[in-house]
Design a protein around this nucleic acid. Structure first.
Lengths: 226, 226
DNA sequence: GTTAATATTAAGAAATCGTTAAATGACACT
DNA sequence: AGTGTCATTTAACGATTTCTTAATATTAAC
């Protein structure tokens, strides 16, 4: 992913700062969107789905913290990074900000170089966030955060249950997971579902990913293998 | 190693669960230790060096994930198995748990049977250290976890009954298993099947694995030997 | 050699899984 | 609230595998 593909939304009620940041970030090659209040920010964020939102803590009406909370509660924005802009070196805003789901905070006054490098850092975390990426097993890569499986690099979207089932099987390639175990871990020990439910999910996985990944051991369970 | 030698440390802030687990595990013959918070858990773990720690994910102060990390960083506890207890079907705790070095996780509410069998599984892994792989006997390796027998490195898939029969025979190479004993352990004491049933399964094993592994002792039983 | 036990084979029964379609549920968008 | 879409579960049936049996052949012990 290149800089040109990165969308950054800046939210601040002070026009000067907005322009200052916008100018500097655009010069770096990012796509920049701005707005001057929290409410508008949420709408705009849902619309453009930026990778990063720079959020002023102090704003009239809806402050940064609250805006952040609302953004975090949006499913479509669950992956968006949020960095706070704090007026001073306020501990309180830092703490409250992290609680609200912030990924970083940047102190004003903002020096361009610091800003750029900081944003690069935040985005780096986002881009090679390989804590969520498992190794390639037989051409399959599982991205737990995005609920996507890549089959030879091609993304395959899976609904929740299917993904969780696949994730379970892939967590130990070769290991046979007993039906009981699958029910316990994917559906939860207390949920009661029919026996065919697992099969149907297995079938959908085989349909979407190919027939050769999941093997049946009759009377025992399933396993993910070469 | 016997059950009486196995030490299990249970860590949960809820007294009910602590007692419930403790009772069930003690009844199984394990040595049980308990504590109700993460900090104490780490100290206790260092002191008693349990083989297994059952760790609640959600705890005040130091949560399970963090406790797990700290335990994992202790050299004296590097081989200790850690199983998480998760309140719901929380994906996050599962994933984060495995990242933190968990060996298994068990969903609440916990059913005694599930718990016992799961713990047995976890401990089996511990006892035959290399997952479930038994030593190589005359070119045969039996992997319980993968439900496969390797013959000179080549995987041979066996159906359930055949596999279980083979596993039994291989559990004590050289030992003669009486037909009665085989029926009891593979088919279950209450199941009634004809005498020829065993023979047929033996035959299939010999067919798939070779004639030289299973020896017949007429009038007595069978044994796995070279 | 006789006999009792096991080996072998094929065929039927039983268990389990696969597949499909349709019902139900969840959820977002009007 | 109403609608539409997608995810999930269920139910029914078919397909397949696994297990057991039964009948016959072979083996090993005496």
């Amino acid at each position: 992913m290149n800089k040109e593909d990165i969308k950054i939304l800046i939210v601040d009620d002070e026009t000067d700062i907005l322009e200052f940041l916008s100018y500097n970030l655009k010069r770096e090659g990012y796509q920049v969107f701005v707005c001057d209040n929290g409410k508008e920010a949420i709408l705009k964020a849902k619309e453009v789905l930026p990778q990063l939102i720079l959020l002023d803590v102090m704003m009239p009406e809806l402050d940064g913290i609250e805006t952040c909370r609302q953004i975090r509660s949006e499913k479509t924005l669950s992956e968006t990074l949020i960095a706070f802009l704090t007026a001073r070196n306020e501990d309180y805003s830092q703490i409250a900000g992290f609680d609200a789901g912030a990924d970083d905070y940047i102190n004003k006054p903002i020096k361009p170089r610091v800003l750029i490098s900081r944003i690069a850092g935040v985005l780096r975390r986002f881009l090679n966030n390989d804590s969520n990426i498992q190794e390639d097993i037989g051409g399959l890569v599982l991205d737990r955060e995005k609920f996507i499986v890549f089959k030879e690099g091609i993304p395959v979207n899976l609904p929740k249950k299917e993904f969780e089932l696949m994730a379970l099987l892939m967590s130990k390639p070769g290991k046979v997971f007993l039906r009981e175990e699958i029910l316990d871990k994917v559906w939860g020990g207390d949920v009661v579902v029919g026996d065919r439910t697992i099969d149907v999910h297995i079938r959908k996985l085989r349909e979407k990913l190919g027939e050769n990944y999941i093997k049946t051991i009759k009377g025992v369970g399933y396993k993910f293998d070469l």
